[in-house]
Nucleic acid binder design. Structure first.
Lengths: 216, 216, 216, 216
DNA sequence: TATGAATGAGGCTTCATTCAT
DNA sequence: AATGAATGAAGCCTCATTCAT
């Protein structure tokens, strides 16, 4: 009987950290392609090249897995932004760099982050995770606006600030969606457009030029 | 477990149109509360006080039912807006009235429209339906901007227009979400805030004050 | 083309009440044969000649199904006993008739009740249901003892009564197990034996002949 | 989800006998708390502070492990009883001491033996093991009764003896259950009560006072 | 000796959808 | 017109058990 030739390095039995990343890669891919509900744990496991029980052992429930995806991708995005927009720069520069980094990230992960994020908005169980992420963003943006306002010697109610920040974040998310749907679009150009809308609008507010509803 | 329920003495043999509205009411309610996937045809039928086969006979598949909901609620909203913002008014007045009507509608259907809409964004099968609705909105907004621009003797590339309109619509949707989540918030005030962001930003654009990325 | 001959009465589409009994019959059979855990819903459904979803629709979870079995069989047994031991008879006659009815029932359902009951004692989720049933029995027995004692002009502490009743019930259950495992054994004879142990022991107690631990 | 735990700095490389006892301790604990099926090898291994393959290497299959638990605890109990009830004592003294030792043991291992035993009664695979243990007990009790009968110059059929012994053992088990469920109860008092029921009842039988079913 | 990595198999449960009355 | 009865299909999750280091 011929000796069994040792098979080429098939890379079985990898350490946990590696497998976890493989799983998350697969999960992001499948969740993005199919959506949370239509995605099946079977497909994710198969795509990760591993058996289902391992996915459960390492990353838990389908929901927990989705949250883990959100977490990893969200953290990556946050890092990309934070690395670009240092807190000691002037507000407009920070905003611009932040936006550019954001759209750059989204553009580079067109089938990862943006789609994932879009899925999450509609599914109740992820409200918490998402709210936290968006809250961090809103807070940052509101902080920038507030800082700029104070520099101009002005001040605005907290709710006003929050709502405006919310609108800006919403507009940005909306453009991110748009970008994800238009593979040929240029992230930087999109960032510029958003900057135009955002900054010009905000600039007016900063200068006290408030629009008021006409007397009906 | 299917409980044995004594059938309620409801009115049988209603005309089809009435029954359909009852079903849609129930469907909107259940879809909003549970989300598309978590909603079950059983619950919808029960909530409508009717048997499942009737739902299928009248409104088809679960997906078709959801689309029907989207359709009815979307149409109602469009009517509300269109009725408020006559096309012969000046752009700013139209925008204001449109926004006010929109947020008024969302505020009045906090658990209907906004939630439904949010659900739909994440589910692939409804991309088409939603894209159509948003496209109509974007088109209207872009038209308003374009009209105003031309009045000023200026003109902007089509993509630019679309993207800005997209941003405005996105910001508005975002605030609609916020409104849906804050039952105590005042729709009119929210509309005012949105108007501030939108109009001030747009106004700058209209006057040619474009922000440009700094030379890196 | 030949007309399709109407198939012989295959008895599809039976009313709910009938199907429920069929399911319970199958469930009792399978649970008894395999034990709660080893029993599979698949086998139960197949044995009942129906699809699994119907079982869930009518009788709920596996646990709920088991409880339903316990309930039905327990109730039947209680009826058998109650019908035999009228409350206006003297205590010894009641006890005798009750025991005879009990062992008769167990003997007639050797693969139903006794086995089911035995399964239930070990599984945590059914503690409640079982405790309730046994409590009813213990209460009845204790009542009989108490009644007899009072007739003799004597009285015993409540805990004493409960514990003695518990012991009698335990002995009875034990013999029921024995009977279930010995298909050839005669229920009536077993009842007589149990009566001997129980009544003679109780009789002594009734006459105040208490055993006391010797001085160590 | 398998949490990433830094391995505790336990003592490695213990002698086999020690490790086995650790495992059995853990197994008894987990089986008692969860029941045979709900107990997982994972939890047992973790509770024993050891990896799963070791459990399999030392004690085999889950079933074998359970049997090993039953064995160890049962043997301990038997020793406790045997040590207390020397075979050369009079029957009543033996019975009393045996019962006292038994309930003392159960009381001292409320969450070990009694619960384990209760689990085992319902699970088919352990019928054999349990039957053996109970048979030994029944035999001992029957022997005592027989011995006492012969002392009185009387004799009873073997089945009669077995059944009566079975009833006594059943009553005792039942009270053991009761004791396990009532942490505040006093084992010695429980033993006294059982002795009353058992001995009084048996005593009558020994004296030939047999109860007979009335001619119906 | 000791363990982290890995999986085959199988069970429970749910749901959209349709049939027969 | 209307519904109770019925199911095929599929998904999540868990677990006992073993391999390779």
């Amino acid at each position: 009987m011929l000796a069994r030739v040792s098979s080429a390095p098939t890379f079985r039995r990898l350490p946990r950290a590696v497998r976890e990343q493989q799983m998350l890669d697969a999960a992001v891919k499948v969740f993005s392609r199919r959506g949370f509900h239509a995605a099946s744990m079977d497909e994710i496991a198969e795509d990760a090249g591993i058996s289902k029980p391992m996915v459960y052992a390492y990353l838990g429930t389908k929901e927990e897995l989705f949250v883990a995806c959100l977490h990893r991708e969200g953290t990556r995005m946050m890092h990309a932004i934070a690395g670009a927009a240092a807190p000691d720069l002037p507000a407009d520069v920070r905003l611009w760099r932040g936006l550019r980094a954001f759209f750059g990230f989204v553009g580079a992960h067109r089938d990862g982050w943006a789609v994932l994020y879009r899925q999450a908005r509609g599914e109740q169980p992820f409200a918490g995770e998402l709210a936290a992420m968006r809250a961090r963003l809103v807070e940052v943006v509101a902080g920038m606006l507030d800082h700029a306002l104070r520099t101009e010697g002005r001040q605005v109610g907290e709710t006003d600030l929050e709502v405006v920040a919310y609108a800006l974040v919403g507009a940005t998310e909306s453009l991110a969606d748009w970008l994800a749907d238009h593979p040929e679009a240029d992230p930087e150009k999109t960032a510029t457009r958003m900057m135009n809308v955002a900054w010009q609008g905000a600039a007016q507010l900063l200068h006290g030029e408030t629009w008021r509803p006409p007397a009906v």
